[in-house]
Amino acid sequence: MTNKEGIGALLLRVVLGIIFIGHGTDKFQGGIANTAGWFDSIGLPGFLAYIVAGLEVVGGIALILGLATRIVGGLFVLLLLGAIIKVQFAAGFIGGYAYDLALLVISAYLLLNGSKLYSLDKYFIKS
Rank of each mutant, 00 (worst) to 15 (best):
D100C: 13
H23S: 07
I85G: 13
I61Y: 05
D121F: 04
A36Q: 11
E5S: 14
G8S: 14
A62C: 14
F20N: 01
I51H: 01
Y50L: 03
I51P: 11
G17K: 05
A36F: 09
P45K: 14
V14I: 13
Y123H: 13
F28L: 09
G114H: 08
R13F: 00
Y99V: 11
F47C: 04
F89C: 10
R13T: 03
G114Y: 09
S41M: 11
Y99W: 12
V57S: 06
A91E: 10
G6I: 04
F76R: 00
I84C: 00
G92I: 07
L11Q: 11
I64S: 04
S115F: 03
L63M: 13
K126Y: 09
A53E: 03
K27I: 03
F93I: 03
L79M: 09
G92Y: 08
P45W: 12
E56A: 00
V52D: 02
F76L: 06
T35A: 11
Y99N: 10
K126C: 15
S115E: 05
G22C: 10
G46D: 08
Y99A: 12
G59W: 03
I32A: 07
Y118M: 14
F76D: 01
K27C: 01
L44V: 13
G31F: 05
Y118P: 08
V72Q: 07
M1R: 06
L63I: 06
G31D: 09
A108G: 11
V105E: 09
G74L: 02
D100W: 09
A98F: 12
L48S: 05
F20Y: 06
A90R: 07
R70E: 11
Y50I: 00
A36C: 12
N34Y: 12
Q29M: 15
F20R: 00
F20E: 06
G66D: 02
T25Y: 10
G96N: 04
T69R: 00
G30Q: 05
G24I: 05
A90C: 06
V14R: 02
S115V: 02
L110V: 07
I21L: 10
Y99T: 12
Y118C: 14
L101M: 15
L101V: 14
D121R: 03
G73F: 07
L11S: 14
S119I: 00
N113E: 07
K122D: 02
L110A: 04
A102V: 15
K86D: 02
V57D: 04
A91H: 13
I18F: 13
L111D: 01
H23W: 13
I94H: 07
G96Q: 00
K4W: 12
G24F: 07
T25V: 15
A91D: 12
